[in-house]
């Protein structure tokens, strides 16, 4: 029962991040929103794996947590005019 409650709260958080991504005046604001929404998504996937009761599903969030910062770093390098 409580898992549904948690999932709803995290869903509201994802919607708020999307609002900043659509509105954000500069590209840096949008990149910050992307970085936040990936971290929130990792927590979302772990709770979802607990709802489905499958141990294998944790691998997806493991891959997310290890790889998603690459996108943020590449965008940051481009903003810095370096790549």
């Amino acid at each position: 029962m409580s898992e549904i409650f948690f999932l709803t709260i995290i869903g509201i958080g994802i919607v708020l991040c999307f609002f900043r991504m659509l509105k954000g005046p500069t590209a840096a604001d949008r990149a910050v929103a992307l970085d936040t929404v990936t971290t929130v998504t990792v927590a979302f996937l772990v709770i979802l794996g607990y709802v489905f009761k499958r141990y294998v599903y944790l691998d997806v969030s493991l891959v997310y947590a290890a790889l998603m910062f690459v996108g943020s770093v590449v965008i940051a390098r481009f903003l810095e005019k370096g790549i």
Binding site: T38, T41, F44, L45, L48, F52, R54, V56, Y57, D59, V60, V63, Y64, L67, M68, V70, G71, V74, I75, F78, I83
Partner: peptide
């Protein structure tokens, strides 16, 4: 990737996560 996860396909979700998020972003940049 989250939708694939809901549809009980974690392997597809893993591929979508790594390719769509990290690799495609780098290529587009």
């Amino acid at each position: 990737a989250i939708l694939f996860y809901f549809l009980q396909a974690p392997d597809v979700a893993m591929a979508e996560a790594s390719i769509g998020a990290a690799l495609v972003t780098a290529v587009f940049i």
